[in-house]
Design a protein around this nucleic acid. Structure first.
Lengths: 239, 239
DNA sequence: CCAAAAGTGTTCATCGTACACCCATGT
DNA sequence: ACATGGGTGTACGATGAACACTTTTGG
């Protein structure tokens, strides 16, 4: 029988097989002037499947929770702490990894590409790959990415998580480009602007972004406090 | 270091700690004339927490997938095979179970109360408990039930899973009572009937159910084939 | 002065919601 | 005959979708 209890707890559950548990992270990123969503992928540095494309992952340690493991892994790769993260799904086919029986708990993270540590990522052999150019990944990692994208699309409609992918100050056109990237579909800018502004969650700043146009677009800030307040009153974010 | 590889695969992942992985099932049930949704709970027969209320669970075996483990567990308890089942969430706090470090992958199942094996369930010490009388459960099982209910409510609006809780033939008032049980809110019967029927997914039978009223209510059947067809055309179930 | 992106209103169809009475029948 | 649950239609407001022109300003 595999596995032996070495910790101090009483051994109520002896005679059951222990299994390796990993966490794999689908890390989505966006740059405020991008037009496409990107995934952070890496070239695997060890066997099996060395040299192939994969998601960032690692094994769950005995003393940490799943969430902690996921945060640790994203921190290792990007230098970013406290990123938006959500558990996605657990993959447990006994043959999913040819290297052994591993159950993988997958997580989706959203990060602002500009804020991550390029050196750290490069050191791990990580690259931002646009979703349209997603390569074949190891094992079931392509399934993970599809599932993550599906979940992101559903979530982004009903919760204000899009802002996790943008800097604190952003313009309405930038926000629209983000949503167009997430849904890979164009939106009408009049309808989009109205919908976003009538929710009353964006504070307009006096400052303009002048890189992308001569006229310049006003910056806005997401007002998280107001969002919490509205939630109390049964408000539903809906985009 | 915990764990040793005993199978024939190469040992690529030595030096990582293996963990006990369990599957816990939130089994929702409904009776066509119920007015409330029920959960199948059991009195725990072993330590730790012997005698307390808990969900049905079991450890994942080396050769089975997570889905298989979940199906096996529900089969053991109810005698039902091929029930509707969906993975919910994985709980992995290192202290969630005082008996040892266990990661639990939870599943939601929907079953028709009339079709399960009462003897089998009784033998396991299982009882149907209405949601309104949900007791304190062991560990994080109450969290699991809340999460399951939240997910059920979301799913039932956008996918025709309600029919998993009803017999093949059911009346519109029965269907309405089910939805009222799921959402714990009353619906307008004229609007409900119209919405349900205009989707075109229900076939009306020539037969009436005469138990609950003198007039009798027509039976309907969910037409899964038609549902598949409509899905191709981009149809969205929405209730 | 012109190119390029930002910003702005109205119309129409659709959908959700509210609402009250008749029907069939077993007792 | 009456009580009980089944079955039906309409009107109104809200919401989402389509659609084109003006504004600003750097070059």
């Amino acid at each position: 029988m595999n596995g032996r209890i070495l910790n101090k707890k009483m051994d109520f559950y002896a005679n059951h097989t222990r299994i390796l548990v990993a966490v794999d992270s689908i890390i989505f990123g966006f740059n405020e002037n991008d037009t496409e969503l990107k995934v952070l992928l890496l070239k695997r540095k060890f066997e099996p499947a060395k040299g192939e494309w994969s998601l960032m992952g690692g094994f769950v340690r005995p003393e940490e929770s799943l969430d902690e493991a996921a945060q640790r892994i994203v921190l290792q790769l990007t230098g970013l702490d406290n990123v938006y993260m959500e558990q996605l799904y657990s993959f447990g086919d006994p043959d999913r990894d040819p290297g052994g029986r591993i159950i993988s708990v997958s997580y989706v993270s959203l990060i602002k590409i500009n804020e991550y540590d390029r050196e750290l990522a490069k050191h791990h052999g990580a690259f931002w790959i646009p979703l349209s150019e997603l390569p074949k990944l190891i094992f079931d990692h392509n399934d993970m990415v599809s599932k993550a994208l599906r979940k992101l699309r559903i979530r982004a409609r009903t919760q204000p998580i899009g802002f996790e992918l943008l800097p604190e100050k952003f313009t309405i056109p930038q926000l629209q480009r983000l949503y167009e990237a997430i849904y890979q579909a164009p939106f009408d800018k009049r309808n989009f602007r109205r919908k976003v502004l009538t929710m009353g969650l964006l504070d307009k700043l006096d400052e303009k972004e002048k890189e992308t146009s001569k006229k310049g677009a006003y910056y806005y800030k997401f007002n998280a406090t107001k969002y919490e307040e509205l939630l109390q009153g049964g408000f539903n974010f809906e985009l």
